[in-house]
Nucleic acid binder design. Structure first.
Lengths: 185, 185
DNA sequence: GTCTATACAGAGATAGAC
DNA sequence: GTCTATCTCTGTATAGAC
């Protein structure tokens, strides 16, 4: 079965949003990338907003699921968090979800922002749950989980600003050294 | 002496870029905000790119200077870093410089990106220098300085995503607890 | 469901008068 | 140096045939 127009449109939009953001991506761009005709786009998605919502929701869900997979497993809790932090990333591309927070049109739209917010709260909750397994109390685990997620997002910013993936790795290294304590530092 | 057109244009552009980013801000927006006429804009800045360069450079320089001021002083080195991290910030607005890294047009432009990169490398160097005063070796200080800068940038992302300034403060709290060690944690 | 053609606003810039 | 008028291209969407 050939992929249908609707699916191709959403997948093309996801890719373009990851590269250029939502505001900078036009319906025409999506049409060209998907190979679908103009009539089809506006049949499936009456407005650009409808398409954006579908694409952002799909990206947020996929990304959160991947992270959840990594944070679960048999390894020791702290090791799983460190493995999550140190996982290879497309540093120069940036986070497909996090970058959207710089797009004012996304933040100003309740529907789009809810998808982005859901990704981050879901990810933070997951990390916090793993940290609590280490014996940390709930409040400290939440602060520390937010720091874990923030260090990745901030590392992306540094890497993109300097066009040097090493800055993401370096920031993570500095953080992990603090996280694992004097024993490993 | 009344502020001249050129200055008013740059200041208006700085404000608009902080709110909407570079790509999303049109020359017309800048004209309206500055109260200057169209002829003047294109007299002082032949293209939008010229104006963007002037405005981004000004913002990067101002922001870096402000940070330097905070990181110098008589307090103990680690206290100065913590004070820098914990300083009140416009969490929902985001970093005026860092947010630009999500704008592909900025990253793809060597001139604009150089201004953004200069801000971050300057800031990181400053933090690293202060951390070395604590006795940390150069490599560890650099990793840790990058983590400090990244935690702020990442905290902004979380705060904007959830529209809740508390997430920036919480991420910083989690990081500072690790940074100041068991003594304060 | 999909196609082509068309509409209309705004972005970015130029022209030429003052 | 500053003004108004104008130009072209693209973003976003609609119309109506197939």
């Amino acid at each position: 079965m050939v992929t249908d127009s609707r699916t191709r449109l959403v997948e093309a939009a996801q890719q373009l949003f990851a590269q250029q953001g939502v505001s900078a991506t036009s319906p025409r761009d999506v049409l060209a990338a998907s190979g679908v005709g103009q009539g089809s786009l506006y049949h499936h998605f009456p407005t650009k907003h409808d398409l954006a919502l579908a694409a952002v929701a799909a990206t947020a869900a996929e990304t959160l699921e991947a992270a959840r997979g990594r944070l679960q497993g048999d390894a020791a809790p702290l090791d799983r968090v460190v493995a999550y932090l140190e996982r290879p990333r497309d540093a120069l591309g940036g986070c497909r979800v996090g970058r959207l927070t710089a797009d004012q049109a996304v933040v100003d739209d309740d529907g789009l922002r809810a998808e982005v917010a859901g990704y981050f709260t879901g990810l933070i909750d997951e990390v916090a749950a793993v940290l609590r397994e280490t014996g940390l109390d709930a409040d400290a685990a939440l602060d520390r989980a937010r720091a874990c997620v923030a260090i990745i997002q901030g590392g992306y910013v540094l890497a993109r600003a300097t066009q040097d993936p090493e800055l993401l790795r370096s920031a993570v290294r500095g953080f992990v050294a603090l996280l694992t304590g004097p024993a490993t530092a």
